[in-house]
Structures are given as structure tokens and as C-alpha cells.
């Protein structure tokens, strides 16, 4: 592997000052499951790896049924799916954490790193968008927050400016009669990269016959994960019917701009958006019904 310096940063301000000073030649090291591979394969040249795992704020995993979830940027996947309260509150996000890599990857890789790596096919991002998550960012000019759907700006590109780092993700407390779901299509059973991914969250009425509101997000069908805004809005205050779900799936297909590559053709991906959007919505709806 290329030579670089390793720094074990102890505070957010120390990491931000280093990032600001070193610029493009410095990268944040959290789980390392993308960054170390990229450095080894020469896909990314860097002079500094700034390990943030000693910083308290990026290790926070704090769920409160009133105030919601604060998910530190370096929290690995296993801490999320090992937490029963989080599994009940944000099942769509938990779906993604369980299918990123295998057990050993999930021991290090986290949602924050998955987001910052900004792969169009990242499994965590569609459910984060569906769950309306917010990114808490620290930088030389202080702190700011942006919605997750504005974080990725291209493959491997993010809205982080020079010197900025993701500190945590914030998710609102789940509302009454709400749930979420994420699934992807892969040609294998495990250990693969999404051909297409779809995440959905729904809020139903008390009778669980109508959708109050929904959010749908797609992965691997554009340079960034997409918030399917029009498809989501079509379901506002709609009775749960196959037609309504089908209309939303069609609207989601309309915004997909997939490429053809070794994982699948553009035509197959567009077809899959329809299938997976329906399944994600029905999966989230079923979860609301199952929880009584």
C-alpha cells in the first residue's frame, strides 16, 4: 500500500483542523472497509489518514422514542442491528446494515462511512433518505445540517466542503403507525453490490387502510441515490390499493436514469425500480400492520 501518515484524532476540532490544513490529501478513516481498499489499489492517493474512532461524538448511538436517533458517523453496522429499540424504530435502515458485506465487514463498516463513500449503489442511503435523515456536519466555519438527499453530489462526491466532516446522522422519532423497508436486487444471496436498491417509509392512518404520507428513495439508478419526490407525493392521503402503489412505482421508474454495466442493463434496472418500489412500499405497510 502507498505510504501515508496515520493520525488518531481525539476531537472533532482536531480532525477538522487537520482536514482543513491537508485538503484533498487527507481522508477520514472510520471503518476503513472502503478507504483502505481504495488506498491499496491506488484508486485514491492520500498522504494522511485521520482516524476518528477515538472521537466521542462519532461513536454516539443514542435513541430516544421522543427525540429520535443520533447515529455517530463511525458507528459500525453491528451496533445498529444489535440494538432492539433501533430495529423496532427504523427497520428500513436496519435492513441495509444487515446486508452490507458479510459479518466481518459489518464489524467495522458503518452507515456514516457508507454515506461519505457516496457510491450510487450504497445500501444505507435510500433508507436514510426514506427516513428523512439529516447530516450533522462540522467544519472550519462551525456546524451545519443538511438533508441526506443533498449529501451525495456524484459518484464518490459529497457536499462536504474543504475541512468539513460528517459527525452524525439525525433521524426523527418514528411517528405512530409508521415503518420503513429497504431491499435490493442482487443475483446472489449475500455479499454483493445492489443492481438496484429501493427504500420506503410510510405513515398510515389509525385504521391502517390509508397512507398519510410516504417517502421513497432509489439506489444504483443514477449518479447519486435519488429521493423519488413525485412518487412519494402521489401516495399522500391515499387509500392503500394496488393501483396507488403501482402509480408510485411508475413515477419512481420515471426518474431512474440507470446505466448498463456488468451488474445489469439500463432496461433491467428500470424494470427493477418498479418491482422494488412496490415491494419496499408493501413491506413497510406490512410492518405497520404487523406491529398492531
Amino acid at each position: 500500500m502507498q505510504a501515508f501518515e496515520y493520525i488518531d484524532a481525539k476531537t472533532v476540532s482536531e480532525a477538522v483542523a487537520l482536514l482543513d490544513d491537508k485538503g484533498e490529501k487527507a481522508r477520514i478513516l472510520a471503518g476503513g472497509t472502503d478507504l483502505i481498499v481504495q488506498a491499496r489499489e491506488g484508486r485514491r492517493t492520500l498522504d494522511w489518514m485521520i482516524d476518528i474512532k477515538s472521537i466521542p461524538e462519532v461513536n454516539v448511538l443514542d435513541f430516544d422514542s421522543e427525540t429520535g436517533l443520533t447515529l455517530g458517523a463511525a458507528v459500525p453496522c453491528y451496533r445498529i442491528y444489535d440494538d432492539e429499540a433501533i430495529c423496532n424504530a427504523y427497520p428500513g435502515l436496519v435492513d441495509a446494515t444487515k446486508i452490507i458485506g458479510g459479518t466481518a465487514i459489518q464489524g467495522r463498516a458503518g452507515v456514516g462511512g457508507n454515506l461519505c463513500n457516496a457510491s450510487p449503489a450504497a445500501d444505507c442511503i435510500p433508507p436514510l433518505i426514506a427516513l428523512n435523515a439529516t447530516c450533522a456536519i462540522a467544519g472550519p466555519n462551525g456546524e451545519r445540517e443538511i438533508p441526506v438527499e443533498e449529501f451525495c453530489t456524484g459518484p464518490g462526491q459529497t457536499a462536504l466542503a474543504k475541512g468539513e466532516m460528517l459527525v452524525s446522522l439525525k433521524l426523527l422519532a418514528p411517528q405512530q403507525n409508521s415503518s420503513s423497508y429497504y431491499l435490493r436486487f442482487i443475483p446472489r444471496n449475500e455479499m454483493d453490490i445492489a443492481v438496484v436498491g429501493a427504500g420506503a417509509s410510510v405513515i398510515l392512518d389509525d385504521d391502517k387502510q390509508r397512507i398519510v404520507s410516504a417517502r421513497i428513495a432509489l439506489g444504483a439508478v443514477a449518479p447519486t441515490p435519488l429521493f423519488a419526490e413525485e412518487a412519494s407525493e402521489l401516495l399522500s392521503d391515499r387509500e392503500i390499493t394496488d393501483d396507488a402503489i403501482g402509480e408510485a412505482a411508475q413515477a419512481a421508474q420515471a426518474i431512474a436514469r440507470p446505466i448498463s454495466d456488468m451488474r445489469g442493463t439500463a432496461e433491467q434496472r428500470t424494470h427493477l425500480v418498479g418491482v422494488l418500489t412496490r415491494r419496499a412500499l408493501n413491506g413497510a405497510i406490512q410492518r405497520v400492520k404487523d406491529t398492531g
Binding site: 476503513g32 489518514m49 482516524d51
Partner: peptide
């Protein structure tokens, strides 16, 4: 590593 399974090729010795 600290009770969790990891790929040692994706951990730095310094960590």
C-alpha cells in the same frame, strides 16, 4: 478484534 470479527486486511496495524 475486541470481540468482533473483522478482516485483518482492512484494519491498519496502527489502529
Amino acid at each position: 478484534l475486541d470481540g468482533r470479527l473483522v478482516n485483518s486486511c482492512l484494519v491498519l496495524g496502527a489502529e
